[in-house]
Design a protein around this nucleic acid. Structure first.
Lengths: 116, 116
DNA sequence: CCTATATTTTAGTCAACACTAAAATATATG
DNA sequence: CATATATTTTAGTGTTGACTAAAATATAGG
């Protein structure tokens, strides 16, 4: 049983949650809507989302339909929608607002990623 | 710049966020309130929380005081508080509710987890 | 300056997890 | 049954990140 926090931690899962926010979609449909991710990965993500109580699953023949459980999400649903709205309207995110108010703090040394 | 989602993903950070939810606390105070975690780890967590815009930092002499930016959190704040209330009052979590609302879908063959 | 206090930063370790490819399961249809 | 379609599960890999211990930085006070 995944926690809601764990479920929301992965960007891909938030992407999926958004895909099933308004309308029900079959797993394959969700897979097609994403790019560069395997079907297996999508299936795993859907399981985590369901286990956290974020989406509901309906079986119909060979298909599995998923949809967000918006009614049960309460303030969480509101918040998620607000983050999506902000992205659309270009409002400052919490982090951006914070950066702006933070005093100059530079002093970053070398990169920590090595390029092969 | 950490995202709010990343910041909330770690249980320890949610614990810290809760500690500074109502009142300002110095980093050392926060460290003392937790058990079995190093000062360094706490400092790192605080940085992530600040970078995500979840907490504000105030410098005073040798001390650094942190407090949640509740006013700026909106529905997110509401949601966080609701999860804490649920834990207190023993309300069902989203996931638990999901389990309960699942129709009599038992009768599926064996377990899906193999016990070593 | 010297020492104690308060916090941050660095280097390194270990486990968790997002991902892929492939095998397995389930259902619909010829 | 045989095959195609839809999805789940498994095994294995690489990256990320939470953690610790120790070194570094900053401030207060004798």
């Amino acid at each position: 049983m995944s926690s809601v926090f764990d479920a929301l931690a992965a960007p891909r899962r938030r992407e999926i949650l958004r895909l099933v926010w308004e309308k029900e979609r079959a797993a394959g449909d969700i897979h097609q809507a994403l790019d560069a991710v395997s079907f297996g990965a999508v299936s795993q993500h859907l399981r985590v989302l369901e286990s956290a109580g974020l989406v509901a699953r309906r079986e119909d023949g060979r298909f599995r339909y998923y949809i967000a459980r918006r009614k049960d999400l309460g303030p969480l649903g509101k918040w998620l929608e607000s983050t999506w709205d902000e992205a659309l309207t270009g409002l400052k995110s919490l982090a951006e607002a914070d950066e702006a108010s933070a005093p100059a703090r530079r002093r970053r040394r070398g990169s920590r990623r090595s390029k092969p």
